[in-house]
Design a protein around this nucleic acid. Structure first.
Length: 221
DNA sequence: GCGACAG
DNA sequence: ATCTTGTCGC
Protein backbone atom coordinates (compact mmCIF):
# COMPACT_ATOMS: atom_id res chain seq x y z
CA UNK A 1 0.00 0.00 0.00
CA UNK A 2 1.03 3.55 -0.65
CA UNK A 3 2.10 5.46 2.45
CA UNK A 4 1.95 9.22 2.09
CA UNK A 5 4.49 11.53 3.66
CA UNK A 6 4.25 11.53 7.45
CA UNK A 7 5.43 14.29 9.77
CA UNK A 8 9.16 14.72 10.44
CA UNK A 9 10.44 12.36 13.13
CA UNK A 10 11.64 13.98 16.36
CA UNK A 11 14.95 13.48 18.11
CA UNK A 12 13.94 14.70 21.56
CA UNK A 13 11.06 13.91 23.91
CA UNK A 14 10.11 17.57 23.89
CA UNK A 15 9.52 17.50 20.14
CA UNK A 16 7.79 14.13 20.43
CA UNK A 17 5.46 15.45 23.11
CA UNK A 18 4.49 18.39 20.91
CA UNK A 19 3.68 16.01 18.05
CA UNK A 20 1.53 13.86 20.34
CA UNK A 21 -0.35 16.83 21.72
CA UNK A 22 -1.00 18.14 18.22
CA UNK A 23 -2.08 14.88 16.57
CA UNK A 24 -4.19 13.66 19.50
CA UNK A 25 -6.90 16.06 18.40
CA UNK A 26 -7.32 14.15 15.13
CA UNK A 27 -8.02 10.81 16.78
CA UNK A 28 -11.51 9.43 16.15
CA UNK A 29 -12.87 7.07 18.78
CA UNK A 30 -16.22 6.35 17.17
CA UNK A 31 -16.80 3.59 14.61
CA UNK A 32 -15.76 4.56 11.14
CA UNK A 33 -14.99 1.13 9.72
CA UNK A 34 -15.10 0.01 6.11
CA UNK A 35 -17.43 -2.93 6.43
CA UNK A 36 -17.71 -5.74 5.84
CA UNK A 37 -14.35 -6.43 7.45
CA UNK A 38 -12.49 -8.76 5.09
CA UNK A 39 -8.93 -8.38 6.30
CA UNK A 40 -7.35 -7.75 9.71
CA UNK A 41 -3.65 -7.20 10.24
CA UNK A 42 -1.16 -7.44 13.06
CA UNK A 43 2.07 -5.47 13.31
CA UNK A 44 5.01 -6.12 15.59
CA UNK A 45 8.70 -5.36 16.09
CA UNK A 46 11.81 -7.31 16.84
CA UNK A 47 15.36 -6.05 17.47
CA UNK A 48 18.74 -7.33 16.34
CA UNK A 49 22.38 -6.41 16.79
CA UNK A 50 22.00 -5.31 20.40
CA UNK A 51 19.02 -3.18 19.50
CA UNK A 52 20.92 -1.24 16.85
CA UNK A 53 18.67 -2.62 14.14
CA UNK A 54 14.93 -3.17 14.17
CA UNK A 55 12.71 -5.46 12.16
CA UNK A 56 9.04 -4.73 11.60
CA UNK A 57 6.57 -7.43 10.63
CA UNK A 58 3.07 -7.21 9.22
CA UNK A 59 0.67 -10.12 8.92
CA UNK A 60 -2.59 -9.74 7.03
CA UNK A 61 -5.24 -12.36 7.78
CA UNK A 62 -8.65 -12.93 6.25
CA UNK A 63 -11.63 -12.26 8.50
CA UNK A 64 -13.43 -13.95 10.14
CA UNK A 65 -11.61 -17.18 9.24
CA UNK A 66 -8.20 -15.79 10.24
CA UNK A 67 -6.06 -17.36 7.53
CA UNK A 68 -2.74 -15.71 6.64
CA UNK A 69 -3.04 -14.07 3.24
CA UNK A 70 0.08 -11.92 3.17
CA UNK A 71 3.11 -10.98 5.29
CA UNK A 72 6.01 -8.57 5.00
CA UNK A 73 9.21 -7.63 6.82
CA UNK A 74 11.24 -4.43 6.85
CA UNK A 75 14.58 -3.63 8.44
CA UNK A 76 15.94 -0.26 9.49
CA UNK A 77 18.46 1.15 11.97
CA UNK A 78 16.88 1.94 15.35
CA UNK A 79 16.48 5.71 15.53
CA UNK A 80 14.77 6.45 18.83
CA UNK A 81 15.26 4.93 22.31
CA UNK A 82 12.54 3.14 24.24
CA UNK A 83 10.95 5.66 26.55
CA UNK A 84 7.62 4.80 28.21
CA UNK A 85 4.99 7.01 26.61
CA UNK A 86 6.95 7.45 23.37
CA UNK A 87 7.03 3.94 21.94
CA UNK A 88 5.56 4.98 18.59
CA UNK A 89 8.54 7.13 17.67
CA UNK A 90 10.77 4.09 17.99
CA UNK A 91 8.58 1.62 16.14
CA UNK A 92 6.44 3.35 13.53
CA UNK A 93 9.12 4.24 10.95
CA UNK A 94 9.95 0.58 10.33
CA UNK A 95 6.29 -0.41 10.51
CA UNK A 96 5.51 2.03 7.70
CA UNK A 97 8.24 0.42 5.60
CA UNK A 98 6.68 -2.99 6.13
CA UNK A 99 3.16 -1.76 5.42
CA UNK A 100 4.34 -0.20 2.17
CA UNK A 101 5.17 -3.68 0.89
CA UNK A 102 1.69 -5.01 1.57
CA UNK A 103 -0.71 -5.42 -1.36
CA UNK A 104 -3.81 -6.35 0.64
CA UNK A 105 -5.01 -3.29 2.50
CA UNK A 106 -6.37 -4.37 5.90
CA UNK A 107 -9.67 -3.00 7.21
CA UNK A 108 -8.40 -3.03 10.80
CA UNK A 109 -4.88 -3.18 12.23
CA UNK A 110 -4.16 -4.56 15.70
CA UNK A 111 -1.10 -2.86 17.16
CA UNK A 112 1.30 -4.14 19.79
CA UNK A 113 0.89 -1.46 22.45
CA UNK A 114 -1.63 1.06 23.74
CA UNK A 115 -4.02 3.26 21.82
CA UNK A 116 -5.82 5.89 23.90
CA UNK A 117 -4.77 4.14 27.12
CA UNK A 118 -1.84 6.52 27.23
CA UNK A 119 -0.84 9.52 29.39
CA UNK A 120 -1.63 11.91 26.53
CA UNK A 121 -4.20 9.61 24.91
CA UNK A 122 -1.91 9.01 21.96
CA UNK A 123 -0.30 5.59 22.09
CA UNK A 124 1.22 3.81 19.10
CA UNK A 125 -2.13 2.55 17.79
CA UNK A 126 -3.50 6.11 17.59
CA UNK A 127 -0.32 7.38 16.00
CA UNK A 128 -0.21 4.70 13.32
CA UNK A 129 -3.93 5.08 12.61
CA UNK A 130 -3.62 8.82 12.11
CA UNK A 131 -0.66 8.50 9.75
CA UNK A 132 -2.19 5.87 7.46
CA UNK A 133 -5.87 6.66 8.06
CA UNK A 134 -6.88 3.06 8.70
CA UNK A 135 -8.85 1.83 11.77
CA UNK A 136 -6.44 0.64 14.48
CA UNK A 137 -6.77 -1.05 17.87
CA UNK A 138 -4.29 -0.90 20.74
CA UNK A 139 -3.59 -4.39 22.07
CA UNK A 140 -1.03 -4.23 24.88
CA UNK A 141 0.28 -7.17 26.85
CA UNK A 142 0.92 -5.11 29.94
CA UNK A 143 -0.20 -2.07 31.85
CA UNK A 144 0.94 1.47 31.16
CA UNK A 145 -1.55 3.71 32.90
CA UNK A 146 -4.99 3.68 34.54
CA UNK A 147 -6.92 1.74 37.16
CA UNK A 148 -9.67 -0.85 36.98
CA UNK A 149 -11.94 -3.02 39.10
CA UNK A 150 -11.16 -6.66 39.73
CA UNK A 151 -11.52 -8.79 36.62
CA UNK A 152 -13.37 -12.15 36.57
CA UNK A 153 -11.28 -15.14 35.47
CA UNK A 154 -13.49 -16.12 32.56
CA UNK A 155 -12.70 -15.45 28.94
CA UNK A 156 -14.55 -12.46 27.54
CA UNK A 157 -14.90 -10.58 30.82
CA UNK A 158 -13.62 -7.02 30.84
CA UNK A 159 -13.49 -3.90 32.95
CA UNK A 160 -13.04 -0.29 31.91
CA UNK A 161 -9.58 1.21 32.37
CA UNK A 162 -9.94 4.57 34.07
CA UNK A 163 -7.54 7.50 34.22
CA UNK A 164 -8.43 10.92 35.58
CA UNK A 165 -12.13 10.04 35.64
CA UNK A 166 -12.03 9.07 31.98
CA UNK A 167 -12.46 5.64 30.38
CA UNK A 168 -9.32 5.26 28.29
CA UNK A 169 -9.57 1.57 27.42
CA UNK A 170 -10.40 -1.84 28.82
CA UNK A 171 -8.70 -4.73 30.57
CA UNK A 172 -9.86 -7.82 28.70
CA UNK A 173 -9.56 -11.49 29.57
CA UNK A 174 -8.98 -13.20 26.22
CA UNK A 175 -8.46 -16.60 27.82
CA UNK A 176 -9.75 -18.04 31.09
CA UNK A 177 -7.29 -17.87 33.95
CA UNK A 178 -4.62 -16.02 32.02
CA UNK A 179 -3.23 -12.48 32.32
CA UNK A 180 -5.54 -9.98 30.65
CA UNK A 181 -4.79 -7.72 27.68
CA UNK A 182 -5.11 -3.94 27.67
CA UNK A 183 -7.37 -2.85 24.83
CA UNK A 184 -8.03 0.67 23.63
CA UNK A 185 -9.15 2.59 20.56
CA UNK A 186 -6.41 3.49 18.14
CA UNK A 187 -8.26 5.39 15.46
CA UNK A 188 -11.70 5.23 13.80
CA UNK A 189 -13.07 2.58 16.16
CA UNK A 190 -14.93 2.64 19.48
CA UNK A 191 -13.80 0.77 22.56
CA UNK A 192 -16.66 -1.74 22.58
CA UNK A 193 -16.23 -2.49 18.88
CA UNK A 194 -12.49 -2.86 19.43
CA UNK A 195 -13.11 -5.39 22.21
CA UNK A 196 -15.48 -7.28 19.94
CA UNK A 197 -12.95 -7.57 17.12
CA UNK A 198 -10.10 -8.48 19.45
CA UNK A 199 -12.17 -11.36 20.81
CA UNK A 200 -13.12 -12.46 17.32
CA UNK A 201 -9.43 -12.54 16.41
CA UNK A 202 -8.56 -14.57 19.51
CA UNK A 203 -10.04 -18.06 19.09
CA UNK A 204 -7.53 -20.02 21.12
CA UNK A 205 -4.61 -18.24 22.76
CA UNK A 206 -4.12 -15.16 24.88
CA UNK A 207 -2.99 -13.05 21.95
CA UNK A 208 -5.00 -12.37 18.77
CA UNK A 209 -3.91 -14.51 15.80
CA UNK A 210 -2.81 -11.35 14.00
CA UNK A 211 -0.41 -10.45 16.78
CA UNK A 212 0.84 -14.00 17.18
CA UNK A 213 1.75 -14.30 13.52
CA UNK A 214 3.40 -10.86 13.41
CA UNK A 215 5.25 -11.64 16.66
CA UNK A 216 6.66 -14.80 15.19
CA UNK A 217 7.78 -13.07 11.99
CA UNK A 218 9.41 -10.23 13.89
CA UNK A 219 11.37 -12.35 16.34
CA UNK A 220 12.04 -15.62 14.51
CA UNK A 221 15.28 -15.95 12.61
C1' DG B 1 10.68 14.80 45.86
C1' DC B 2 9.29 9.57 45.08
C1' DG B 3 7.54 5.87 42.39
C1' DA B 4 5.69 3.93 37.87
C1' DC B 5 6.79 3.05 33.30
C1' DA B 6 3.49 -0.13 26.30
C1' DG B 7 7.93 -2.63 23.69
C1' DA C 1 12.27 -5.81 23.28
C1' DT C 2 16.11 -9.41 24.67
C1' DC C 3 19.06 -12.89 27.49
C1' DT C 4 17.24 -18.52 28.42
C1' DT C 5 15.64 -24.97 30.31
C1' DG C 6 13.05 -27.20 32.39
C1' DT C 7 8.77 -27.53 34.42
C1' DC C 8 4.03 -27.01 36.57
C1' DG C 9 -0.77 -27.42 35.21
C1' DC C 10 -4.99 -27.94 32.32
Amino acid sequence: MKIYQSHPWPSTVEEATTIQETLRNQVIITDQLDEPIQYVAGVDMGFLEDGKMCRAAVAVLSFPDLKVVETSLAYRPTSFPYIPGFLSFREIPAILDALEKIQTIPNIILCDGQGTAHPRRFGIACHLGIIIDIPTIGVAKSWLIGNHAELPESKGSWQPLIHKNETIGAVLRTRTGVKPLYISSGHRISLTTAIDYVLRCTPKYRLPETTRIADKLASDR
